[in-house]
């Protein structure tokens, strides 16, 4: 039978984030992709912020004052959550890639989520106590 299109039946990167029918490992993948994109966006924002240094102390100080708004602090919390999850999940995948803990990949993911939660709570408490 002639195949008319030869184009794969896929929605491309949208399928990365489609949660329907996904199991634990699939959710781990979705979170990994989301945090990767979030951290990449943050990297560029961070570089823009650092660029304020070149504009003199007044520009930098005004940005720091701006950054103490609750919305920005919430964004910083997301960066910490994303960074912790992405880094710890990277350790999980690296261990799996050495053949370590593959049958326990779900439990390892639960551990990653637990450590991310604990680390985020500690950071959040310190951040809001400091400011």
């Amino acid at each position: 039978m002639e195949n008319p299109t030869k184009k794969p039946n896929t929605r491309g990167i949208l399928d990365w984030f489609d949660p329907r029918g996904r199991r634990v490992g699939g959710w781990g993948f979705i979170l990994n992709r989301l945090t990767a994109i979030g951290l990449t966006v943050y990297l560029y924002l961070h570089l823009i912020m650092l660029g304020k240094l070149a504009q003199g102390p007044e520009a930098y100080d005004s940005f720091i004052a701006f950054a103490k708004q609750p919305l920005i602090m919430f964004g910083e919390m997301l960066v910490i959550i994303g960074g912790l999850y992405h880094g710890l999940n990277g350790v999980r995948i690296a261990l799996n890639s050495f053949g370590v803990g593959v049958p326990a990949q779900k439990q390892l993911l639960y551990g990653v989520l637990g450590l991310t939660l604990v680390g985020s709570l500690i950071f959040g408490l310190r951040m809001f106590a400091t400011h």
Binding site: R23, G25, G26, V102, P103
Partner: peptide, 23 residues
């Protein structure tokens, strides 16, 4: 492979491709 292990979850023959890729 990005270690989503969805292959292992859907395999009807218990081949466990996720584990095999890691191995």
């Amino acid at each position: 492979c990005h270690s989503a292990y969805e292959c292992t979850a859907v395999c009807p023959s218990s081949v466990d491709p996720g584990w095999r890729i890691m191995d």
